[in-house]
């Protein structure tokens, strides 16, 4: 009987388990930097190459590596795709959704704006980064590198991003988002 249920956010663990082998056929994900992931809530920010589904394989790899559910952001709010993505753990790109999950102690993964070059970090949405400031949780950069045709995909978790200055107003969100983009780019250049 307990098999027929979803979690508080509508994620269906049995559907995820059923789809995971298919995802593994497409991606062979190597995860590094797991020591940087805190035991409590955190906002993870990954770079994103257009159409590479970086946040999907990063969420898959990190879920397997941590044993915790990674809530990745970016599902549409229309059926059937939005409904299906909700069942595999996706949230809306809505500040309230991100804040609620962070306050609930979840690991939330958001994407920087998609770029054509996989080695270039796009703009990080400060509206979503701001929710980490409000919830007072760390922000970690996550690089995703994959091939368009091969199976190999690399996911690396960086150290928590520190704001350069103490701000009390909304500048804290903008500056932290810029800092995350900068740290992501530094990690991509180094890898």
């Amino acid at each position: 009987m307990a098999a027929y249920a979803v979690d508080d956010y509508g994620r269906d663990p049995h559907l995820v388990a059923a789809l995971s082998p298919l995802a593994r056929l497409r991606w062979n994900v190597h995860v590094t930097g797991m020591d940087n992931v805190p035991v409590s809530a955190a906002l993870l920010v990954c770079n994103s190459r257009k159409f590479a589904l970086g946040s999907v394989y990063a969420a898959l790899g990190l879920t397997e590596a941590t044993g915790r559910t990674i809530r990745f952001v970016g599902r549409p709010d229309t059926a059937p795709l939005g409904a299906l993505m909700r069942r595999v753990g996706a949230l809306l790109a809505h500040p309230a959704d991100v804040l609620g999950a962070l306050r609930d102690g979840e690991l939330v993964l958001i994407s920087a704006a998609g770029t054509r070059n996989g080695r270039q970090a796009g703009v990080v949405p400060y509206e979503l980064i701001g929710q980490a400031v409000i919830a007072d949780v760390p922000v970690l950069p996550v690089t995703t590198i994959s091939s368009s045709f091969g199976r190999t995909a690399h996911v690396a978790v960086g150290t928590p991003v520190l704001a350069r200055r103490e701000r009390t107003g909304p500048l804290a969100h903008v500056e932290l988002a810029e800092q995350v983009q900068h740290d992501l780019q530094r990690m991509l250049d180094r890898d």
Binding site: Y9, R86, H94, A96, G100
Partner: peptide
């Protein structure tokens, strides 16, 4: 409505 929070809290 479209775009409403998945799991609203009391501040929604």
């Amino acid at each position: 409505g479209r775009g409403s929070g998945t799991r609203p809290d009391e501040s929604a």
